[in-house]
């Protein structure tokens, strides 16, 4: 995708660091977007410079705020701990001293748990508010997302070709502008399952619309976090 004016003039965000705060918040949002339901317990394993300077950059608050669906520009990001207490979400931050050469210097592993579900996401903040999701449940993926600019839709579907076509048709029907799309399939499983991430700008899907997408044949789940982009 080409560089936009608003990649330079943006994102609008809560300080102090675009990679350690805004990017961290976005990784948290992504983890929550992929999780089915409300997490009761969240663990954050911090790697590289996330492990050493996370308190000074409020990386901890930002990650937790993201998991609670706060925007990168929400001033309440600073009160994430208090909000989590109110919502009765337990959280833990574990700085990992060991270096993992494969990981970018700013990397976090988030484990979300509820009574029924468990999900792990590994993501890196690669500078200027851009993030990359590297693993979902230990399956290697490669999603790049921009903090504060896009709203993302995560779709789990079967690997059959054309399984996404009805979904794209529906989105087209609603005039939903798709800026970017990436699909990754897990080659180990049989039948193969795939995950697609769509970046959507200036359009908000309503809950019934997301549910309608989920009912389409060949689609396992659709996860969306609406209203995450500053208006």
């Amino acid at each position: 995708m080409d560089v936009s004016l608003f990649d330079v003039a943006g994102p609008i965000m809560v300080g102090p660091s675009s990679s350690h705060t805004a990017g961290a918040c976005k990784i948290g949002q992504m983890a929550r977007a992929l999780f089915n339901g409300t997490p009761k317990e969240v663990e954050f394993y911090l790697y590289g410079s996330f492990a050493t300077v996370y308190q000074g950059h409020a990386t901890d608050r930002a990650l937790l705020a993201g998991v609670m669906k706060l925007k990168t520009s929400d001033a309440h990001l600073a009160d994430a701990f208090e909000i989590a207490e109110q919502k009765k979400i337990r959280y833990k931050f574990i700085p990992v001293k060991k270096e993992v050469p494969d990981y970018h210097p700013n990397t976090v592993k988030i484990i979300l748990k509820s009574k029924k579900n468990r999900l792990s996401v590994i993501g890196s903040s690669i500078g200027g508010g851009e993030v990359r999701i590297n693993y979902i449940n230990d399956i290697p993926v490669d999603f790049e997302l921009m903090a504060g600019r896009f709203f993302s839709l995560i779709i789990g579907h079967s690997s059959e070709e054309a399984s996404l076509e009805p979904l794209f048709e529906k989105l087209k029907e609603w005039d939903c502008p798709i800026t970017d799309s990436q699909t990754i399939c897990n080659v180990k499983d049989a039948p193969k399952s795939c995950i697609t991430a769509l970046n959507i700008e200036d359009f908000y899907l309503k809950l019934p619309q997301v549910q309608a997408l989920e009912k389409l044949p060949g689609i396992e789940f659709v996860r969306a976090l609406t209203k995450l982009v500053p208006k």
């Binding site: 330079v8 965000m13 660091s17």
Partner: peptide
């Protein structure tokens, strides 16, 4: 931790 525009970055 106030709201700003990262232009080009927060720093």
């Amino acid at each position: 931790m106030g709201k700003i525009v990262a232009f080009p970055t927060a720093g």
